[in-house]
Amino acid sequence: MATLRDRKKLKLDTNFKQIILWISLVLIVIFFLVPIIWQVLTSVKLNEDISAIPTIYFPTRFTFRHYLELFERRPFLLYIFNSALVSIISTILCLTLGSPAAYALTRLKLPGENVILAGILIVTLFPYVLLFLGLLEIVKAVGLGNNYLALIIPYTAINLPLTILVMRSFFQQLPKDLEDAAKIDGYKIIPMLIEILLPMTLPALVTTGILTFIFAWNEYIFALTFITRDTMKTIPVATAQLGGSTLWDIPYGSIAAATILGTLPLVILVLVFQRRIVQGLTAGAVKG
């Protein structure tokens, strides 16, 4: 009999655990999704419905005006193009500079490599607000204001530490025999990197590239400071600066539409590459 009661208790326990689990799951999903869903709903509401009191949660009338206005009244396509351009180019640059550096720091036993690695780790913790003044001076001195390079170079740099750390953890897992065999075959290091290691590194490069792309797309303070010409602005700055004709006339619908359009590429990246993003982040943060 005792065993039966135990079993009943156990079943009750697991049921209880299941209920707690599902309640917390529902809460987690609501907490993380609701602000986004709210923006989606706001973006398709008519202006009267947006400013209705009490709040209309699920609109019965829909409009795409707010989306259209972004393209009619603003160069929103240009904003997307600017963001895409600086993010893609800085990602490519970052991988091109970062992977060889990561390889050198993994395999080539350079003197002082520990100091360099420690430096790279510390640098990842610097808030960008500590850097913008010095960079602003350079940008002014070289005449790079309102030039994509004023964003591409800093974006490459802020993503280099992560790239080096993630690629390094990848190279560490690679069997060394392969490189030894290549060397016996007479390969020099650089041709070996390009012809043998590069194809094998592709998955790691994709993982790293997704992360660097996201960070570049989201950067705000440099874009706010170094780019003042409207047609060259990136998504975060352009969205933050969407204003109405007066201080009180804030175009909530357009802001919501801009939020959805400007974050859509990132949401798609997350949906497609969830696993890689997690891998990359943990390799960059934990193994470093």
Binding site: L25, I28, V29, F32, L33, P35, I36, W38, Q39, T42, I214, W217, N218, Y220, I235, P236, V237, T239, A240, Y252, I255, A256, A258, T259, G262, T263, L266, V267, L269, V270, L271, Q274, I277, V278
Partner: peptide, 24 residues
């Protein structure tokens, strides 16, 4: 799916989502 959902806020631009929260 739940894991994917939990990553989404991390991936979105802070400046843009700040606007969403100001609206909330």
């Amino acid at each position: 799916i739940v894991r994917t959902i939990t990553i989404i806020p991390w991936a979105l631009p802070t400046a843009v989502m700040g606007l969403a929260w100001a609206w909330i």
